[in-house]
Design a protein around this nucleic acid. Structure first.
Length: 891
RNA sequence: GGGAGUUUAGCUCAGCUGGUUCAGAGCAUCUGCCUUACAAGCAGAGGGUCACUGGUUCGAACCCAGUAACUCCCA
């Protein structure tokens, strides 16, 4: 027999992953069993595995493997998301490498390149997930832009449009002037930037105007108001000046009008409590076309929208001055102009948050444009109810508040994007500007012909499809339904069996973007929830608490981690530092701990593997066997409880301690035969059984090492399909609580003996004599063997009298004596006992003060009083013994 | 600006309905061990004013109010 000294993950992992695949253990088809379903949050096709995926998918795999081992029909559906913007960026970069620019391509040429890119790189991340051990049903792999899923997108778009839930409208979007596209909020990166705050003077009209109300009669006064702005180049787009109605400094401005410097356009002074009085001067310039908040303010006050910027960020004719200048150049120039004409009061340094394009790093320009929207308020209501009623559980619960807050203040969803990669909006424009909604040109043509306004010579080619594509989330919100073809065939066997799914594991960042919308889609299109539980993971940070990011370079490469510590080690490492819902401060050392744990299991196996059986030997280990069985069952209960609450790291820790401490450090040590001595058959068989159970409960966390060991001949013959991955988890069995309690006492005794050995620097090899004067009723005879073995004792005598001149210790109220060869140090002994006494006396005092407190006695529940009385009795008994021992030492 | 959350040992976190000898776990640290399963290990030990200030209560890490620091989400 030649077993390596440490566990070597590499060969094991590949071997078993292929074995599982070959034997189709990940595959799921509907049958009579209870289903357990997870749909993967589809990673972007552009994605490479990062630590967030590692965490997320480890959790999913643990849940799926556990369900599988509970006898459920476990189905984990994998797939990828087409990720419009991210992919478009990759494709544009690829084209650039080949010397092609997107502008030179037609839409269909471009799409051909994009698909080429997708086919080449789009599956990388799924391959990487296999290294982690992810037990997805790969036959079910889907892609949000494959034909069938796109069909679903078009159908739902049309459905919602017909229902009146989709409309076109003008709205402020994040405009990237370099990329010349709108961006979603998620693609905007906010950074703090040093800027200048310009204080600009606006001339106030005289009071004569107030009387006549005709602007012709405007008479200029000498009065000015001052506005602080970071964007002086947008003053030409101003629609009003806004002040807080409660601002005492400006009561005299109520109802007045002012002139925009340089262009002398006249605008009103309006009142709104939106303006903070202590920022800047308290006067806010309202520029509806170029600021989101100003836009909303403008809507409220019916202000005109004057857009002075072109798509590329240069000023247009509406600006009247500096036309054609870039916005930043214009900013500098206008400051000079203002200064020259005396309109610039001062300039201050100012720090503020500015949005940048994730792709081009250009400063984002809020811009009004025609977009498609999906109405949300109607759909939000049932989505909220599901969560509030508890049909869908959010874990941790704190997210219910966040979820509610969002849904109660929901805004319509802008679903169009100025990109090519994605589902093109199925809207077709007629030459007269009208449009129809239809899936195909043919359908659109039919539809268009039926419009009253159309003349009969309308041709199919006259229709022009909307250039924009749909937001990626407009396909991913259908994911739990579309992966089971629930749109194409709403009554098929898969969707009826697997839907609603059980658990969704995802990041809290996309609670609104994705989770809430899936709930809406589930209700809208199936009248049902899409999943029962949503487990929201934390964000993986480095140990300094910083988010992991490419630019910081603080993110380890998951594949290198797997290389270094093994997949099992990394999985354990991830879970060890991931309390439910909190961010996790990842550090490689957790993976090291995971690897060490795998190694521990490996070595326990080596030990048992080395044993020879001697059938003539009696079983002396009944107590140890009974104890471990009870302890195991107790731990199963704890683990199940933790899983029920989705406390995965605690479930793992309970498993870890059961295996390392109880199984390895206590049980195996209790029964381990002396080196090169055989073991009896009964103990051996029980141990093998225990070991097999240990492998089972470890499997969801550590699939590879457990599968490897499972197939060792130590555990007997295995048929081809007898694998750990499909073994049935041990069920909760009976617990002997008295035995468990007594063994805890036994462990304390052993620890005390070892402690004394350690503190007196006695070699671990030297056997010590121990005597016990039992007062508590613990049947020590029963545990003699165990205590003698683990305490390395020469004798264990049960005595009736105290032994003088011995080192003593107490466990509960039982007294223990070790007679050492050399004289004990009475002073040290004395000091130790006195310290114990002091502690006990203090403890007793606090108990007594409670018991003598009338209000405690009259208010506390009877069982609490009972406990206090018991504490008192115990403490008094122990004190008595201590006093006797102290007396014996004459100190 | 609005909302949510966090603060317990050096680190990461448990601590349920206020009451067991309740101040815990893992890691790290320290001491002693190469005791033939494992030094990626074994044995033992030491670490905390439960952020701060008040309050409620017979009793507070836990409930209430305020303060401070940090984090996230929305704007």
């Amino acid at each position: 027999m030649n077993i390596s000294k440490t566990y070597l993950p590499k060969e094991t992992e590949e071997k078993w992953y292929s074995y599982w695949l070959e034997h189709k253990f990940f595959k799921s088809v509907p049958d009579e069993r209870e289903p357990y379903t997870i749909v993967i949050p589809p990673p972007n096709v552009t994605g490479v595995l990062h630590m967030g995926h590692m965490l997320n998918n480890t959790i999913q795999d643990v849940l799926v493997r556990r369900a599988r081992m509970q006898g459920k029909n476990a189905c984990w559906v994998p797939g990828t998301d087409h990720a419009s913007i991210a992919t478009e960026a990759k494709v544009v970069a690829m084209l650039k490498d080949r010397g092609i620019t997107k502008k030179d391509l037609t839409r269909s040429e471009y799409m051909a390149y994009a698909w080429e890119w997708k086919e080449k790189y789009g599956g990388i991340i799924l391959e990487q997930l296999k290294k982690l051990g992810a037990s997805c049903d790969w036959d079910r792999t889907r892609f949000t832009m494959e034909d069938e899923l796109s069909e679903a997108v078009f159908d739902t778009f049309i459905h919602l449009y017909k229902k009146g839930l989709i409309y076109r409208g003008i709205r402020m979007v994040n405009w990237d002037p370099a990329g010349r596209t709108g961006l979603s909020d998620e693609e905007v990166i906010r950074k703090e930037v040093n800027q200048k705050l310009y204080y600009i003077k606006y001339q106030v009209a005289s009071s004569k105007y107030q009387d006549t109300g005709k602007s012709n009669d405007l008479i200029l006064g000498t009065e000015y108001l001052t506005v602080a702005t970071t964007r002086p180049e947008t003053i030409m787009a101003d629609a009003a000046i806004c002040i807080n109605p409660n601002d005492g400094r400006y009561f005299h401005l109520h109802g007045k009008r002012v002139l925009i410097p340089l262009i002398n356009r006249e605008i009103p002074v309006i009142l709104d409590e939106y303006v903070t009085m202590d920022f800047g001067t308290g006067c806010l310039k309202v520029t509806p076309a170029h600021d989101l908040n100003d836009y909303e303010l403008g809507q409220k006050h019916n202000l005109p929208v004057i857009d002075i910027l072109n798509d590329d960020g240069t000023l247009n004719e509406k600006a009247q001055i500096l036309v054609g200048e870039d916005r930043f150049a214009a900013r500098k120039k206008i400051a000079v102009l203002l200064e020259a004409d005396g309109y610039l009061e001062k300039v201050e340094d100012y720090k503020s948050q500015i949005g940048f394009s994730e792709r081009t790093d250009a400063v984002i320009e809020p811009k009004l444009s025609m977009q498609w929207f999906c109405k949300m308020d109607e759909m939000a209501k049932p989505a909220l109810d599901y969560v509030l009623k508890g049909d869908i559980k959010l874990i941790p619960e704190k997210y219910i508040n966040t979820y509610r807050h969002w849904l109660e203040n929901i805004k319509d969803w802008c679903i169009s994007r100025q990109l090519w990669w994605g589902q093109q909006i199925p809207a077709w424009y007629l030459p007269n500007g009208e449009f129809v909604i239809a899936k195909t040109r043919e359908d659109a043509f039919e539809e268009a012909k039926s419009l009253k306004s159309q003349n009969s010579d309308l041709k199919s080619e006259d229709l022009i499809q909307d250039e924009d594509v749909l937001d990626t989330w407009f396909s991913s919100w259908l994911w739990p339904i579309s992966v089971f073809d629930g749109f194409k065939d709403p009554n098929n066997a898969d969707i009826n069996y697997y839907y609603p799914t059980n658990d969704l594991v995802t990041a809290p960042e996309i609670l609104f973007l994705w989770v809430a919308r899936m709930v809406m889609a589930g209700h809208e299109f199936r009248g049902e929830i899409p999943f029962k539980n949503v487990y929201l993971t934390g964000i993986v940070r480095d140990k300094l608490g910083r988010k992991m990011s490419k630019s910081l370079g603080n993110s380890p490469d998951p594949l290198e981690l797997i290389e270094k510590f093994g997949a099992d080690g990394v999985r354990v490492g991830m879970l060890l530092c991931s309390p439910a819902g909190n961010d996790l401060m990842f550090d490689e050392s957790y993976c090291e701990q995971g690897r060490n744990f795998a190694n521990k299991v490996w070595n326990a196996f080596k030990l048992v593997k080395g044993w020879e059986i001697d059938d003539s030997l009696p079983n002396n280990n009944e107590v140890a066997i009974d104890w471990f069985e009870s302890r195991f069952n107790q731990a199963i209960g704890e683990i199940e409880d933790n899983f029920a609450q989705y406390r995965l790291s605690e479930a793992l820790m309970a498993t870890y301690k059961l295996v390392w401490d109880d199984f390895c450090a206590w049980y195996l040590e209790m029964i381990k035969p002396v080196y090169q001595h055989p073991i009896d058959r009964e103990t051996y068989n029980s141990t093998i059984k225990f070991f097999e159970n240990v492998l089972k409960i470890l499997h969801p966390f550590m699939p590879f090492i457990t599968e490897e060991l499972w197939h060792d001949e130590l555990f007997g013959e295995r048929s081809e399909n007898d694998c750990c991955i499909v073994a049935q988890l041990p069920r909760y069995g009976k617990i002997n609580t008295q035995l468990l309690a007594e063994v805890e006492i036994v462990k304390q005794i052993i620890t005390q003996v070892r402690n004394i050995r350690n503190s007196k620097q006695i070699s671990p090899k030297e056997k010590l004599p121990l005597s016990v004067k039992e007062n508590s009723g613990v049947p020590y005879q029963k545990y003699k063997l165990i205590i003698t073995k683990l305490g390395n004792l020469s004798t264990l005598d049960i005595v009736a009298e105290k032994i003088s001149g011995a080192t003593t210790f107490m466990v509960t109220t039982d007294e223990f004596y070790i007679q050492l060869e050399e004289n004990l140090d009475p002073e040290a002994e004395c000091a130790r006992l006195k310290k114990d006494k002091e502690y006990l006396a203090g403890f007793l005092k606090s108990v007594n003060s409670k018991l003598s407190n009338e209000r405690f006695m009259s208010n506390a529940k009877p069982d609490i009083i009972e406990v206090e009385l018991k504490k008192k009795a115990d403490a008094e008994a122990k004190l008595k013994i201590l006093d006797e021992n102290l007396a014996a030492l004459a100190c």
